[in-house]
Design a protein around this nucleic acid. Sequence first.
DNA 1: CTAGGTGCAAAAGGTTTGCGGTTAA
DNA 2: TTAACCGCAAACCTTTTGCACCTAG
Lengths: 138, 138
Amino acid sequence: MEDDSNISELLAARGIRLTRQREKILAILLQQRDHPTASEVYERAKQKMPSISLATVYNSLEALARNGLLKQVNVDRAPTRFCANLEDHSHFFCERCGAIYDVEAAAAQLGNLPPGFVVFHADVALKGLCSTCSDLNV
Amino acid sequence: MEDDSNISELLAARGIRLTRQREKILAILLQQRDHPTASEVYERAKQKMPSISLATVYNSLEALARNGLLKQVNVDRAPTRFCANLEDHSHFFCERCGAIYDVEAAAAQLGNLPPGFVVFHADVALKGLCSTCSDLNV
DNA sequence: CTAGGTGCAAAAGGTTTGCGGTTAA
DNA sequence: TTAACCGCAAACCTTTTGCACCTAG
């Protein structure tokens, strides 16, 4: 890992430790940016760290997300997926193959809100077909 | 209920029955438009129909949603909420009190998508403070 | 040294399902 | 009449938690 010191400082500033498990989990998310679920992260982590537990994967993902090193991505009721892309972006959900893609951030044009309502974020979730699946559609 | 015949036909066309339970559940959603969870619908339904089961509430909500009479609303990992407003609209989630409001549909201005990607829907979820909660903020 | 983390197993919480009896159409 | 549905209880799946041991800082 290239910038552990960076991560370490980031976490230390919040009284949170950089453990081997968290390091590995973060590396997995950085390496293969396919928005894996906790179970998928667990399966990948076990290959190099067979003693890691699923509970630790859940706890670590939560800790990393809470400290801004990961983002959680939820689609309907499906298992939460994780994303190491910290830049402003939107998610595209392919309705055929279920894959999630990071795409250029979409802006929301708000309609009229009732008086007194204050918007902090507007999350845009795109649903459709990815290039592979729209090809199959012909 | 005023237009059961309408609903009945809608469902019949899909080989789905309009039962007393489904009728009641739909009436609950139409009457109090606060986006209740399945459990909340169950509690309300039990008052007039004490023998109804939670499983039936879940199954009925699912059947009604699958047939376009209800919409499901998911926020993060919280229990699914249900919405009888079939018109085009967006949802506003109050981060303080947790309430969900229907608001005027927000439009999404898509960024550039990779070639071959086709967007069917762009769901915009607004998060912030509702008028009651932003007042408390002063 | 010690607060915070790990692994394990058990529990929680929402949702779905199998089954025998019931009912809308 | 009969396929679809109901109520009940058990199962399912993801996620969280309690606890004894361990380790990063």
